[in-house]
Amino acid sequence: MKYSLLLVVLLSASSLIAQVSQAPQTIGSFDKIDSLENQVSDIDSQMGTLEGKVSSVDDKINTVDRKVSSIEQQISGVDTKMSSVENKLSSMNSNMTVMKNMNDIVAPEKEAVLSKTTNLRINVIGQGVAPMNTASPAQAYALAKRAATADAYRLIAEKVMGVRIEGQDTIKNMMVKRSTVHTSVKAMVRNADIIETTFKEGLCEVEMEIILLHAQF
């Protein structure tokens, strides 16, 4: 029994000695690992600094991008302003041409106004047609001329006195149901002269003239 215990003790001692003899090798590997870890940590720190630099560069790129986008927006705003100014200029040019045309049309004929020194001459052309059943062409002509004369008198009255107008529209369910316009004129006309009478294809036209004097009003 004693021998067996001694044997066990010897074996455990030999295993310890063997372990002790192997320890320097593991210590060397630990050193390598430590150095590798140090290198890795150095690399990590370098990576960290690089990442920091990359992030700062990214930030700078982002700021540059923002500035570029803001400049682009400003440029687009300037472009829209330029286009609106160009549109306004073109519309002003068109208005100017229209006004020039209006002046060309209106300028030659200034509106005549009755004054103490100038008389006012009014010319109208009245139209009339003959009735369907007339006894002779002469009767047709006479009746058409009468109608045309009345029309010319009406036109003179409208020019001198003005027209009274009344309009009425009836709208139901967003649709025009009835549209009515009444116009009327009442006047007394004298000393109107017939300048010319023409009768062509059943239509009689009477050109009439009246000269208004300031003393008459």
Partner: peptide, 9 residues
Amino acid sequence: LQIESKDIT
């Protein structure tokens, strides 16, 4: 002459 005209549209 007295003129009296009425139009209806």
